[in-house]
Structure formats: C-alpha cells, structure tokens
Amino acid sequence: MSSVAMIEQTAGKGAARAAARKRKRNAGGAGANHRPGWVTYTILGVVLLISAYPLYYSFLLGTSDAQTIAQNPVPSLVPAGHFFDNMRRVLESDIQFWKALSNSVIVASLTSLSVVIFSTLAGFSFSKLRFKGRNALLVFVIATMAVPTQLGIVPLFIVMAELNWTGKLVAVIVPAMVTAFGVFWMTQYLEEALPYELIEAARIDGCSMIRTFWHVALPAARPAAAMLALFTFVGSWTNFFWPFIVLGSSNPTLPVAVQLLQASYFKDYSLILAGVTLSTIPLILVFAVAGKHLVSGIMQGAVKG
C-alpha cells in the first residue's frame, strides 16, 4: 500500500494533501535535471576505488599465503588461488563459525528492530510533541553519548551478573535496545521530514497518539529508519569488546570467533584475513539488499513510499 493512500485512509484528506505537497517538492534533481558531466563521475569513481581497495586488499591477502604476504608489501591485483583453502581452514578450526554466524544474525537483527522502533517513538515525541522538560531531556539524551564506554564495562558486567545473563545473547541485545544516537538521529530527521500539518490532520480526524505515530510518523520516518537500522545492524555486527567480555568464546558472535584465529603460533595473515572476509560477506549481502531499499527510500523522499 502506498503510504499516501494509507494516510488518506487513516488520517484524512488534510494529511493526504500535505503528503502530496511534500511529494511535489521532492520531484526533480538538485537545481537542474541535466545529467552531470564526466568530472563528477571521475571524482566519484576515484572515491569508490579508494574506498573499495582496502576491502579488496583484505580479500587479496585472504587468497594468498603467509609467505607471499610477507615477501610482497604490494599484493598482486589478481587474487591468488588459496581462498577456498583458507576458507576451509577457517571453517575447520574450532572457532564455531556457524554458531557465531547465527548468534550475530540474531543479535544484529533484534537490536536493529528494537532500536528503530524505540528511537522513532522517542524521536517523534521529542521533535513533534509538546511536553514539560522536553528540551532538558533531549539535552540529557545527547549528553549520555559523551560518557566514555570503556569504564562502564565493570558496572555493566555487575548488572549482567546480577541478572544471571552472562554468557547469554540477551546480555548483548538488551543494553543496545535503544541508543541515544538513535533517538537523536530520529529527532533531528523527523524535525525536518514530518510536517505538523500531517499530525494535525491525523489528530483532527480523532487518531490517538499511538495511531498518529503508527500511521503518520512511522511512514514519514522510513528512510531515516532504514538508515538507522542499517547502521545499527553494522554496529552490532562489528562490535567486539563487550560481546567478548560478556559472552566469551563458548557462545561467541562473529568478531569474537574470528579473533580466535590469531590464537596460533604466529600471525598468519592469510588465515586471519580470510576469516575477516568471510565474516564481512554476510554484511555485504545485507548491504546489497537493504542498501538498495535504503537508497531508494532516500531518493523518493520522506512521504512517498
């Protein structure tokens, strides 16, 4: 269902008019519709090469062997033939790769879902609703981001031990269920992207607050929410220190498991980077699928779905 239709259905004509107005102002490119010249493509191409190279470098090393890596500071641009061999070594080692993979999927998915819902809810409240202490509370939320996390590990671990959560995935999921960053991000986004007319219209039509949120704020927040979900997913996927401390190697997430590849006689870069590449591939897949939606969400503007 297109969200404009949905808004008309649930929040009335006023909201739909506002939505349509918004759609109009998003039609067309920045300033002009003509295609940009080769300079733009060249700059972007160079940027893309630079940003892809380190990842490719990691893959190249993962297809190589330790000896070749040490002898050649600049790896050949063509992958060597050892990737499947290295991959097999990673999967056959005792790092529990598959369990770690499923743990990571569970943790990252649940965390993203929960962060998006709670942050959007709070962001809607902070950006569009009136209540006493709003500004002070928002400042407080932002200030909480400034607390250095390293020290919090000990008291947080005490909390988890009290709850008897150590070693369990819930100990990684719950502390990350809503973040100050998410709240701040959704607040800033909804500030711009959600016109008051829409809320007004919904309210006039007698929608309760939660229905207003569900039918007006949530659709308007979609592009930012997609982005937040992706960022949260990636952040959760790549997080190392806290999962390492609270879960340990017996119930690991991927980074905790992949890190164990270093526990051998010497630093075998081909093995480590093959593991790194393997653990990054799922993320690239998610990115390839979700990234497209994310980008199209941004492109089509806030309301039109």
Binding site: F244, G248, S249, S250, Q262, A263
Partner: peptide, 9 residues
C-alpha cells in the same frame, strides 16, 4: 574450555 585469542584479551 573457553579460549581467548591472546594473553592480553
């Protein structure tokens, strides 16, 4: 057995 990669960790 619970393993850590390095002595440091």
């Amino acid at each position: 057995q619970k393993k850590a990669a390095t002595s440091n960790e």
